[in-house]
Structure formats: C-alpha cells, structure tokens
C-alpha cells in the first residue's frame, strides 16, 4: 500500500527529515537579518496591499458588511492558508531537480523531499494561525468591534447575519483541517515533482496555475460575492475554497466544519495523496536516470 510505504519511510528517515526541516526553518528565520520577522511581515504586507486594492480601489462589498478588524483577520487567515498550499506545491515541483546531486549520486530517499517541504510550510502556517488567534482574542474580546453602521441599501445586521468573532470548541477541528490540507497539497506536490522530472515545462505551468488558482479562491473577497455573480461552481469545485472557509469558520467564528464538506475534502485529500505518491513511487527507481 502506497500510503503505508510513505509512512514507514518517513518514520525510518525521521532524523533526515528533521535535518532538512531544521535547515529550512533556520535558513528562513536565522539566515536573514530580520529573520523570524519576515515570516510575519510578508503576509502582513500582502494583506495591506490586497486590502488596499480590494477594499478601497475595487470597493469589494466585504468591507461594507463587516467591521475592518474581521475583514483583516479573514484575509490574513486566507493568505497564510493559501501561502502554505502554494509553498508546498511550487517548492515540491522543483525539489527533485534542486536536489539532483543527492538523488543522482547517493542512495537517497527522495520521498522525504516534498514531505519536509510540507512540514516546513506547516510551521509557517501555524505561526500565521497563532497570530490570527491572537487577533481573535484582541478584536473579539478585548476590543470587540461593533457592527458598522450599514449603508441604507443593506438590510439590518440581524438579517444579513453579522457575527462577532468568537473562539469556540470548533478549534478542535483545526488539526483535522490541517491534516486534510497537508494531504491535499502534498499529494499534488508529489505528482508535480515527478512530472517535472519528465517534462521540465511543468515548473512554469505550476507557477501560472498557482496564480490563477489563488484568484479563484475566496481569499480577498467573500465567497458569497462569487455566488451572487453566478460563478458559484468555481468555489464548489475548489477544495482550497472549502478549506479557507472551514478554517475561517472554525478559528474566527466558532463554527464546526460542515460534515458534507468535510467528507468531500477528506475524499479529495486522500485521493490526491494516494495518486500523487503512487505516481511518485512508480517512477522513483528511475529518478536518477531522468536527472
């Protein structure tokens, strides 16, 4: 069984994986002068940029319906969720080629490469989530934001479902969401890593795909807006959209994930991981030849 093989290998090579993750995180947080600071500032910068573009320039209706603090937290959570996915997928795509020296010249368990990347990406995501939790505490409890006075054309707060920020038991579902998230992204990572060895153009394809995919995910605009305009299928078919919504519900508003969505997500994540690793392992004995 493919997944069991992956699990066994990761357990056996745990010290090796640890080495890579350690080096990766250190490189990110210690290597540069500002180090750790950047991992927070980078999403914050993109948050500022996108808030400006979507809320002020394009006047997306999100800002009118919800207090700014909520919009900011929702966007930030969306950005870090997406960032984790994008990091796993794009870095995995190039990782076999980047580490060709190891694969070609020593007996190297290449399956640990996308795995270590996803662990390192997870660490970043966790930092982001922690920051959002802090924000929820601050803006939900310490300085709760009142429902902004709506413009005349909007229905009253109760009718349009204004909700205060709330930490709830639903936080318990976050580990499950994280697991499904990683499974989904990692599966894609394995698939693209293998494909990229066979056709080097896959790398370019991946970066294009990631950009398009990002704008097809409700990170900077509310999901409802897409549905209103008749593009509901875009989010219905996009597991990342499900994930972003589920994270937001669970972390910011105390909503448990919908069971149906969870089932779909689990199915997609498992399928992705299974297909990706299967394809990877099937071609693995020839990686050294491909490089």
């Amino acid at each position: 069984m493919t997944l069991a093989r992956l699990y066994r290998s990761l357990r056996r090579h745990a010290p090796l994986v640890g080495n890579f993750v350690d080096k990766d995180l250190k490189g990110r947080y210690i290597g540069s002068t500002a180090g750790f600071f950047w991992s927070l500032v980078q999403p914050l910068l993109s948050l500022a940029t996108y808030t400006f573009v979507f809320s002020f320039v394009l006047d997306s209706r999100w800002s009118a319906q919800q207090p700014t603090s909520q919009v900011v937290l929702m966007m930030y959570l969306g950005i870090v969720t997406w960032g984790c996915h994008a990091e796993i997928v794009t870095r995995s795509t190039g990782t076999l080629i980047d580490n060709g020296n190891l694969i070609k010249k020593v007996v190297f368990p290449s399956e640990i490469l996308p795995a270590y990347i996803s662990m390192s990406a997870l660490a970043n995501l966790l930092i982001g989530v922690a920051l959002v939790l802090l924000g929820t505490l601050v803006f939900g409890y310490a300085f709760p934001a009142a429902d902004p006075t709506p413009p005349d054309w909007l229905p009253s707060p109760g009718e349009r479902g204004f909700e205060p920020l709330r930490l709830g038991l639903s936080l318990l579902s976050v580990p499950l969401l994280l697991a499904l998230h990683l499974g989904f992204s990692l599966g894609l990572g394995y698939l693209l890593a293998t494909l990229n060895l066979m056709i080097r153009d896959v790398g370019h394809f991946t970066s294009a795909l990631i950009t398009i995919w990002m704008f097809g995910t409700p990170i900077f605009y509310p999901e409802a807006m897409v549905r209103e305009r008749g593009f509901g299928w875009v989010v219905d078919l996009n597991p990342m959209a499900w994930l972003v919504e589920a994270y937001r519900g669970a972390i910011l508003f105390g909503h448990w994930p919908e069971p149906l969505m969870l089932a779909k997500l689990a199915l997609v994540a498992l399928a992705s991981l299974w297909l990706g690793t299967r394809f990877f392992f099937k071609a693995q004995h020839r990686f050294a030849d491909f490089l």
Partner: peptide
C-alpha cells in the same frame, strides 16, 4: 555501503 562516487556527491551546496 559508503561510497565516494564523484566530487561533492551527496553534498547539499547550501
């Protein structure tokens, strides 16, 4: 088996 196949084999340049 330990092998010394080529110059720098098995090293990560970074």
């Amino acid at each position: 088996i330990a092998s010394l196949l080529e110059l720098g084999a098995g090293f990560h340049p970074e």
